[in-house]
Amino acid sequence: MFTLSERHKGIVSFVPNDPKELPQSYIPGSLAYQSTNNFGDFYYQEVQQENFTIWRSTYRPYEDVSLRVKREVKWLGFRMMLKKHISHLFLGRPIAIMQGQMHFAYSPLTDVELMLKGNEIYEVVDMQVSPSLFYQLKQRGRTFEAFAAMIGSDKPAWISDKPAWSSYTVLDNMENLLQDPTQDKIAVEIVQQVVTTLIKNKGHDKKITYEQVENIFLIREMIQHRFPEAMTLQQWAKESRMNTTDFKYKFRQVFGLPAYKYLTFQRINAAKEIMLTDPQLPLSEVARRCGFGTYNNLRRAFYSTDKTKLSLWRDKNLGMAFQLLIELLLSEML
C-alpha cells in the first residue's frame, strides 16, 4: 500500500469506490479508490495478476499541487503518461515525462513527487512487474544485463536516463491489456517492447512542445474514430497547427510510424473485425466500410501489412467468426 500526500495540505486519503463509477475506462477485476478534496480530485484503479500489478490513475487538481507518493516496498516497472505531461522527482532525481512517453526503473522503495498544474486532467498507467516476468524477456546486451544485476539491491537503477516515446504498438497493447488484464502474453509483450525501446533510446529526438504532442494525440484519436473517411496529410497538419514537414516527422517520432501507415493499420484492424463479426459480407463492402473504397485497395493493403492473402486470412479465421456469431446470438437470447 502507498501513501499520498500534498506538500502543503498533508495526507491525501482515499476511499473505495465502484470502478464503473470513476471518470476513466473500467478495468475488469479492478479495485477502485477515490479522493475528493478542495484542492483536487484523484482516482485510481488497481488490478493484480500473478506477475504484474497495474494502476490507472487520474489526477484533477483545482490548483497547482505537489503530490508525493511513498511506498516501502521494492519497485520494478514503468510509468506511461496517457494524458498531459508531469514533472517528477524520483528519489530526488528530476524526470519529466511527456504524454505518450514511458520510464522504466528499479528502486528499493518508492518516493516520487509529482508537480501538477491546476485545472488540468492527467492520466497515467503504472505497471509493476515481478522479477520472474522481467527475466522472461528475450533481451541481451550490456545495458540490459547491467540493469538486471541491480534488481534486488539497495540502489535505484534506470534502463535509460531519459524517457522514451512508447509508440503505437505499446499504446494499443496497453489499451487491450486494460480491457482484459488476464492476458499474460500481452503483458509480457508490453514489457518487452518498453524495455527494448528504452535500451535503444538515444535521446536524439527533434524538439517537440507540449502543445504539439497533445495535438498529435488528437490526430491519432481522429484516425481511430474517423478511419473510413478520406483524410490528407495537409488536413492533419492543419489540425495539429504544424506545417506538413514538422507534422510528418513528429507524428513518426511519437508513434513510431508515419500517419498514413497508422491510418492503414486502423483500417486493416477494422476490416478484420468486420470479417469476424459478419463473415458473409462481400469483401467489396468490407473495403467500403473501412475506407479502402475498393476490394483491390483492401487486398493490396492487407498483403502489404500482414504478408498473407486476404482470402486466406478470412478462410483461416472462419471458424472463429462463426463462434463469435454463435456467442452473439446466445447473448441476445438470454
Rank of each mutant, 00 (worst) to 15 (best):
E6V: 05
R7P: 01
K9R: 14
K9I: 03
V12R: 04
S13E: 11
S13L: 07
K20A: 15
L22G: 10
Q24R: 13
Q24A: 14
S25P: 12
S25M: 14
I27H: 01
P28Q: 06
P28L: 06
P28S: 06
G29P: 08
L31M: 12
Y33E: 07
Y33D: 01
S35Q: 03
S35K: 01
N38C: 03
N38Q: 10
F39W: 10
D41L: 01
Y43F: 15
Y43A: 03
Y43E: 06
Y44T: 01
E46L: 10
E46V: 13
V47F: 05
Q48T: 15
Q49N: 12
E50Q: 15
N51Y: 10
T53A: 03
I54V: 15
W55H: 13
W55L: 12
R56Y: 12
S57N: 09
T58Y: 00
R60T: 14
R60F: 06
R60G: 03
Y62M: 08
Y62T: 14
Y62Q: 09
E63F: 04
D64I: 02
D64F: 11
D64A: 13
V65R: 03
V65K: 00
S66K: 13
S66Q: 14
S66E: 15
L67P: 09
L67Q: 03
R68P: 00
R68K: 12
K70I: 11
K70F: 10
R71F: 07
R71C: 06
E72C: 02
K74Y: 06
K74P: 07
L76R: 03
G77D: 05
R79C: 07
M80Q: 08
M80W: 00
L82G: 01
K83Q: 15
K83T: 14
K84C: 08
H85V: 03
I86P: 02
I86Y: 02
I86M: 04
I86K: 04
S87N: 12
S87C: 04
H88A: 03
H88C: 08
L91M: 13
G92L: 06
I95T: 08
A96G: 02
A96T: 13
Q99L: 03
G100L: 02
Q101E: 15
Y106C: 01
Y106A: 00
P108Y: 02
P108I: 04
L109I: 08
D111G: 06
E113T: 14
E113A: 08
M115W: 08
L116E: 04
G118D: 10
N119C: 08
I121W: 07
V124H: 00
M127L: 15
Q128Y: 12
Q128A: 13
Q128E: 15
